[in-house]
Amino acid sequence: MIQIEIISNKIKSIGDLVNSRRLKKIVVISKSGEIVGKIREVRMKGFSVEGLVISSGILSVPVFIDRQFIKVFNQNEVLLAINPITTLRGLSVYDTSGRNLGKVRKILRQDNRNEFTSLVVRNKFYSRAVLIPKDKIDIMKKNIILNIDYLEYTDKLKAKELRAKAEEKETGKK
């Protein structure tokens, strides 16, 4: 091991500082203890770390996590203060009747915050996608359980659409 000489007024030992050469081996863990991925890049502004780019696999899209969401950052692991919403992708979705609607394929967001507006759920790749608004979700842990019966919900939506069309026709006649 190469001996490093230290020139600093504050630091006496550099053993507990994060080594940039080992960054890509550091595992990122979410608030619930799930492994989100590994560090791909560290984004900096001047000397301060602004956030981390995390990759969770070859096919997955890397995620940038702002430093405000990083609780612990040391040589071996990064512990986040949040459960990134990107981890919802792939979770199974069940309604109150125990119906398996499929898996989360897409997360629809309004901005870059760790929040979403709705989820796109699909059972098989050729099946029709189902849009689930956030307020219809009851439990979101290992999988997702809704607070609605999906068939009742879609019936209500269809009825609403029909009513709206009928009203449009009436107003058009007038």
């Binding site: 609780k71 612990v72 692991e77 512990l79 398996n100």
Partner: peptide, 29 residues
């Protein structure tokens, strides 16, 4: 909780499933 269409929903989570999980300290170690 419910005998569902595709599954049976429980209103509890068995603690026995904790067995085998990784244990991390407050620093994620």
């Amino acid at each position: 909780k419910k005998f569902g269409v595709d599954s049976i929903l429980l209103n509890t989570s068995p603690k026995s499933k904790v067995r085998g999980l990784k244990v991390l300290d407050s620093n994620g170690k």
